[in-house]
Nucleic acid binder design. Structure first.
Lengths: 344, 344
DNA sequence: CACTACCTTGCAATCGTCTGCAATTACGAA
DNA sequence: TTCGTAATTGCAGACGATTGCAAGGTAGTG
């Protein structure tokens, strides 16, 4: 393959013996052109298979009609769903999307931001990496007056719009469900403690406990680093707790799945011996045996909402004042939590 | 947020009382500049937080250093893995990536191509949609001398490089495994028949059968449209076949998972009553009960290889003649296929 | 002192598109 | 016939960065 030269306005102009400006106006269907001229130009353009050079257009109007997205991992089903929602809305509103993944690394997150800013994206949608515990790079974006918004993995202090799930209420719902089914000694398996969702979900967990008059027991709050080894270690640790807890709520589904798999190997029956619940409603949650009770958070909708708001801001349809959009989650009850016969 | 104006070379030039060309040369570390001038400019650029405008650079050099990727669905774990591999390699080689999804629609695929071409991507990596049965849009790319490559979902006649898995051999391996475990009446559940992978995997299925002296039985080759309903229908249909087949090989894991779920509801035991195997090794395959025997195809590696080859072509490191890269798959034996005690 | 040669730097054109303004033409009206 | 006005079209500069060429300056040499 050789250099695939694109047809430009200049070539159309030369072929028809008119100026480039005339061609430009014709293709914009400008009313000040003679109808016949316009027709000829449009026809020639179609025939020559002309496509506007978006790069040149963007440079001219100082808007690239492109958005940047940074997620921790594309291979996570949840983030893939978000991206899908973002794409669908962005495309119908005439925007392209450039996607980057931070691989849960702060350094990569910073690099991605640099790249996207250099690429002149009109706005950024960012979900923070697990490692992100400093925020200068975000404040810098803010100072440079670059439009961006945080979703799912947010940092609350930064004065930009945020789209999150109601993590507190989601966790509250699922823990309440466990309590209603008779459990009292309930373990919370947290991810790294400075993670936004770790904190929020713990808050919901504690709220449900206190509502049922159950005192917080610090020995029932465990932390995993979210690696397979970490998860398995937690699984074993739980079995060693005496007396054995009646239920376990894991901060995210993958942890619950690892725990479940490990327990089955040890001959533990779920939910008979111990109830289990997760959060996110990953595809795996529905197909493990027993199916996993969890909290569903529609990533596709989150993506759609996030990008809609950002585009509204860009297009001047929404105020530039930061707002916080909080989406509701839904409790999905499956077999893994049916511990005692419920009191319904 | 107001319009986030970027610092340009012009501003640096004005501030230091030099010309824009001097600034440009300084930032390129050109040797023909006075060292002191260069130092001052570089310093000012850093202080003013200058970032080159990639749009302008791209326009100037007629290379955007951006690649386009089109996949049927981002939310598919396999394609997400491919994208991840593509990104990692592209980024380390100084390229950005724009991702589009066709949502399995031909019209969307065409639209995506238009967008990416207008965006002046330097090359395209395409995995065809399920619906794609005409190929003019690809031949047009070819005629316009735009660099592109097909991966996974390919069309064999188009004279461009292709990266695929050895679907024939993968299917052969898994069916051979079923045969070795004693099964003889083996069902093949195919997707739409004009799909590349449908055909190739059937080829492997037939080859294994014939090697074991088993005659092809057309009534054991079923087709699903890959929707949930279609899959369930196939699941029921299989149970109604008399005498009941001993094993079933589904073209892709999601079909196998649907079939498995449906059968469990009907009280069928797997693998005791009937053996089951899939293809792809989705995350779900490992966690269903019983765990699903399948064929693993590393999407991440495919993405890496595909983009490496395309970039090699772009950078003149590889011949422009189309080549075909075929990756090997690996049989992953799990419980779902352990039907009869094997003859090992 | 004059001339050459090199070292630095700036000018101007370019990439493809858009647009304010000027220029040309034609037409009708007085 | 002459002027005004509207209808068309082109010129040129801009967006931001790059680069061949030329110009300015300095220093060195005879």
């Amino acid at each position: 393959m050789k250099k695939g030269r694109q047809v430009t306005m200049k070539e159309i102009a030369k072929k028809l013996g008119v100026s480039v400006s005339t061609v430009s106006r014709a293709l914009q269907d400008s009313p000040e052109l003679h109808a016949e001229t316009k027709r000829k130009i449009v026809e020639a353009a179609k025939e020559m298979n002309y496509r506007p050079n978006l790069l040149a257009q963007s440079l001219r109007i100082s808007r690239s009609k492109t958005l940047g997205v940074i997620v921790p991992e594309i291979t996570s089903h949840f983030f893939a769903s978000c991206i899908s929602g973002i794409q669908d809305v962005a495309n119908t509103r005439g925007y392209n999307v450039m996607i980057c993944q931070s691989n849960e690394l702060l350094s990569q997150e910073k690099a991605n931001i640099q790249t996207l800013v250099s690429s002149q994206v009109d706005g950024l949608l960012i979900s923070l990496s697990r490692e992100t515990n400093t925020y200068e790079h975000l404040y810098e974006l803010y100072d440079r007056e670059i439009n961006f918004l945080l979703f799912d993995r947010v940092q609350e202090d930064i004065p930009v719009s945020k789209v999150t799930f109601n993590d507190v209420s989601g966790a509250y719902q699922v823990v309440k469900h466990l309590l209603e089914n008779g459990s009292r000694r309930i373990v919370y398996v947290s991810g790294p403690e400075d993670l936004y969702i770790s904190k929020k979900r713990k808050e919901g967990y504690l709220r449900a406990l206190s509502e049922f008059g159950v005192a917080e027991d610090p020995s029932l709050v465990l932390v995993t680093d979210l690696t397979l080894e970490g998860n398995l270690q937690v699984a074993q640790h739980i079995l060693a707790i005496d007396p054995r807890p009646e239920a376990v709520f894991c901060m995210i589904d993958p942890v619950a799945v690892d725990v479940l798999t490990e327990w089955k190997k040890s001959g533990i029956r779920i939910p008979e011996d111990i109830a289990l619940a997760g959060f996110t409603d990953n595809p795996t949650a529905a197909v493990v045996e027993p199916p996993l009770t969890t909290v569903s958070q529609p990533g596709y909708d989150m993506g759609k909402l996030a990008v809609s708001h950002l585009l509204d801001q860009l297009d001047g349809l929404a105020s530039e004042d930061p707002i916080s959009i909080v989406l509701d989650t839904t409790l999905v009850v499956r077999k893994s939590s049916q511990h005692f016969s419920s009191k319904k």
